[in-house]
Amino acid sequence: MSPVFTRIAFALSLLSAAPLAAAPCGNDGSGFAAWKSAYAQEASAQGVGAAGLSALANASYAQATINADRNQTGVRYSLDEFMRIRWSDAYTSQARGYLAQYPDFWASLENAYGVPPEVILAIWGMETGFGGNWGNANVVNAILTLAYDCRRPEFFGPHAIAALKLVDRGTISAGSIGAMHGELGHTQFLPGNILAYGVDGDGNGRLDMTNMTDALASTANYLRQKGWQPGQPYQEGTANFRVIEEWNAATVYQRAIALIASRIAQG
């Protein structure tokens, strides 16, 4: 082969090996359609199949998600304010009721993952009021919008790819409904966490975060995989409190979970 053709072949090999250029982010919906077209190449390269790519192509810009993301206030509350808004004595009683009603289930979770039931109940109650409010946002639209938005694409991009892979697997659909930031199910898992930590808790061969058993087993598994130490305390300053930090980055949320769990356990 001539030196010229050798150089051309070498250049082409470098081009084929080069990573795909990232799809450009945006701060409003005007560039979302173009972003989806570019992002489809990235998604395909990362193993997203036909169903996921179809969900991507048909996704809509979620303005309500952007509005919610721009106007978060909960992290600025004091612990007392946060508890007043997000929790109640009735929730504590409800949690204790679940604990008394399903003792074998909670014991099986603690035996399998080492996480005490009051911590799981605190998270479940805090996230959705024990399954009473999962949100009203289209999960795929929300997570893709956040992956496109220029504020935090590095964080939400992997979750967007995970969401599309979950569509491929049938774990969620293009029409699945959840919270404004794409969280799904009883304890509000982000798609990447479903993919990494989701557990088929009831053993029916299908992972379904809208199923209570699957969602709570997945929550326990997440905490254990993040370093939960069985039999150890979980109040502020402990190793297990640092695991609660892995669940939610807001200090007021972490402190609330530890406080609520202790109240449930006192019953």
Rank of each mutant, 00 (worst) to 15 (best):
F155Q: 14
Q266E: 12
V115Q: 04
G26L: 08
L184V: 08
Q46I: 07
G132S: 14
Q101N: 06
N211W: 08
K226S: 06
K36W: 08
C25K: 03
N141W: 00
G114I: 02
R206K: 14
F82L: 06
G237D: 08
A22Y: 11
L12M: 11
P117R: 01
C25N: 08
I172S: 00
S93R: 03
G114E: 05
A43L: 04
I260R: 13
N133H: 15
R206A: 14
L99S: 05
R152P: 10
V119D: 00
R255S: 02
N133I: 13
A217M: 10
D208I: 05
E118M: 11
V252R: 02
A9Q: 14
T219D: 00
N193P: 04
L79M: 07
I123H: 06
S13M: 13
F155L: 09
Y197R: 08
F189E: 04
N138S: 13
L195N: 03
A162E: 04
A43N: 03
I123Q: 01
G201Q: 02
I244N: 00
Y61Q: 04
M126D: 02
M209T: 09
S37M: 13
L79D: 01
Y39A: 03
V75Y: 15
V4G: 08
A22L: 13
G131K: 00
R152I: 07
N221G: 06
E246L: 13
V140N: 04
L109E: 04
A162F: 01
I177S: 07
F82K: 00
R84A: 15
V199S: 04
M209E: 12
D168H: 11
E118P: 14
A107T: 13
H159K: 08
I66H: 01
A256G: 00
L79Q: 05
I161H: 01
Y253E: 02
Y98D: 02
V199C: 05
R86Q: 14
E236H: 09
G125S: 07
G157K: 05
I177N: 10
Q63M: 15
W228N: 08
A179R: 02
N111W: 06
A220M: 09
S176A: 15
R70S: 09
A250H: 14
T219Y: 11
M212C: 07
G178A: 10
A50H: 12
L146D: 03
T73H: 14
D168I: 03
P103W: 07
Q232P: 07
L259K: 11
